[in-house]
Design a protein around this nucleic acid. Structure first.
Lengths: 235, 235
DNA sequence: CGCGAGATTGATGGTAATCAACGAACGTGG
DNA sequence: CCACGTTCGTTGATTACCATCAATCTCGCG
């Protein structure tokens, strides 16, 4: 494992404040593994054996029931996932698959729990991370229940534009069907939602979207800090 | 504050394992307050000043944006709320109002954070509680994204029936409009959803619902432990 | 009895899912 | 280099689901 990968992980809020010795022991107990695109890393209903960290690549969290499927989150370096299941030694509620070639660090759940018991700063960081994850989920719920599809798309565009440096050009780093599922709609409907945003200066060219009238778009989207977040991204 | 109220709070998983002295100090730092129905206890965007515990009565969590409103959770004794905001000293993402006359124990956020730092067992319990809250939110998201309104109602009926002792008679302990909002639909649509479930033995009489064919209803609802939960209720 | 709040029912329009067809982009193999 | 096939995205037609508006109904209560 490369030194700057370790540094990047160390810099995560989850690990930043813990003791150096427990951090190194934790990392060394993990396996860094490469996966090609489209590999299912974990499956809902399985017992949580490992804490996963996306070191490189891109991972989609998704969930299914009764033959239906939806994307619940999109992760990129350096994100952790399924912390909550690991913590309480429970089954996963979501599945995960790679969207592109990825490197994943997998730390045995038992080791995470032992480290948590040994290092108060780590336990504290876990609480903060779980609180963040919970609040993100609440935002997502509000987004879904209080907005239409086109509004969710408009706000996603504004948020992503900000994340990408306000160049008024948003790059969609994954398939549009994945974005559609993340936003809680079908691919067909995402197309129509893009078309509906055209009057507000939204121009789609393949994976790139130009926002020629960001202020008009914002007027339509009515972004709300209590949903779209000042703290974290919703991916 | 009555002795058995304290005992009930002590029995919460959040407080069960902490030290006796820190528990009593925490409780004593709190204010037990009575509220009539319909009082807004906290408002989103406000800074989290107190951890709240529903000792008696009933509390609705809700959220608004752009003039729209939705119910995000329904709490009854003995539930805690807004732990996540308290923990990280952030603003509330949800509002709360009493649905009936209620007694609420309010513990200053600063005291909660200090106690957490002093009692590792309490911090550990907070992590577990946050993990539970997060997983509940994920279940809620899956419920919303993967099911229709009638399916959500059917599963809610089955879940609530189980909570109430499988008497095949579900009592709705709040207004139907509140249930509708909780399930992500309008009151009108809830009525129609009830009508749609009639072929599966669902008979509504005011606030009571008889399930005359629970197995047929289950066949329609397709309950999924990864959504409807074996651990906790979604209220 | 009459009032008012909540629940229900009906009528209508909007939003989204589904099914089907077409088109563009890309990679492969001839 | 081009023909072909596959995949993804878009568009159109249709249907299902849900929101809104309006009217009626029920029930509890003054």
């Amino acid at each position: 494992m490369k030194q700057d990968d370790i540094a990047a992980i160390r810099n995560l809020s989850l690990f930043r404040l813990m003791r150096e010795d427990t951090f190194l022991a934790l990392i060394e107990a993990g396996f860094l593994q490469r996966f090609p695109p489209g590999v299912v890393l974990i499956e809902e209903r399985d017992r949580a054996d490992f804490l996963h960290i996306v070191v490189e690549g891109q991972v989609e969290m998704f969930a299914t029931t009764a033959g239906r499927e939806t994307t619940t989150d999109l992760l990129r370096p350096v994100d952790t996932f399924i912390l909550a299941a690991v913590l309480s030694d429970q089954v996963y509620l979501q599945s995960a698959r790679t969207l592109e070639a990825s490197r994943i660090l997998m730390i045995p759940a038992e080791k995470v729990r032992a480290t948590m018991a040994a290092d108060p700063a780590f336990m504290r960081a876990i609480s903060v991370e779980l609180a963040r994850a919970y609040r993100t989920a609440v935002r997502d719920l509000k987004n879904l229940k209080l907005r239409t599809g086109a509004e969710r798309l408009a706000n996603w565009l504004l948020r992503t534009n900000a994340e990408q440096g306000n160049r008024n050009r948003v790059e969609i780093a994954f398939e549009k069907r994945t974005l559609a599922s993340r936003l809680g709609m079908t691919p067909e409907n995402l197309s129509r939602a893009f078309a509906a945003l055209r009057p507000y200066g939204v121009k789609v060219k393949g994976p790139e979207v130009d926002l020629t009238q960001p202020q008009a778009l914002a007027e339509f989207a009515k972004p709300d800090p209590m949903i779209d977040g000042c703290e974290e991204n919703l991916s």
